[in-house]
């Protein structure tokens, strides 16, 4: 599933411009401690977090993430948006909790091990 398909399917809105929406979503990760996310987030994942400051962009670039999703209706800082647009990392907004969205994504097959 591409980022733009995920947005349409789950009703996510983009805070950034249109860059990076064709990235492939290969998994998901939830976390608000940057070192923990740095250590464990899978490549190509969407990262669900409450952190909206500029340093999330470097983590997303270095872990080669598909997108960052701010949960709980949090808004990213202006500097975060500027950096994210520059690096082509979409920043998306989700009004409800990380738990809620993570459940929906997993149920739809994102990051779910193949049955069998």
């Amino acid at each position: 599933m591409k980022v733009r398909e995920m947005m349409e399917r789950f009703g996510l809105t983009a805070a950034t411009g249109g860059k990076g929406l064709d990235r492939e979503v290969k998994g998901g990760y939830c976390g608000d401690l940057l070192s923990e996310v740095m250590a464990s987030a899978p490549q190509g994942c969407v990262w669900l977090t409450v952190q909206g400051h500029q340093n999330i962009v470097a983590v997303a670039v270095l872990r080669e993430m598909a997108a960052v999703i701010l949960t709980g209706n949090r808004r990213p800082d202006e500097e975060t948006l500027r950096k994210a647009d520059q690096e082509g990392i979409p920043i998306l907004i989700w009004p409800q909790s990380a738990y809620d969205l993570a459940g929906r994504l997993y149920e739809s097959g994102v990051g779910k091990p193949a049955a069998g």
């Binding site: 490549q43 400051h53 500029q54 340093n55 962009v57 470097a58 983590v59 670039v61 270095l62």
Partner: peptide, 29 residues
């Protein structure tokens, strides 16, 4: 904190341009 992380992104892009093994690049990053 505004420019923090940019040097690491630069290092990563250098290693990518050198076509280093992606798993090794992730460890270095």
């Amino acid at each position: 904190f505004v420019h923090a992380g940019e040097a690491s992104i630069h290092v990563q892009s250098i290693l990518k341009a050198m076509r280093m093994d992606p798993a090794l690049i992730r460890r270095i990053a």
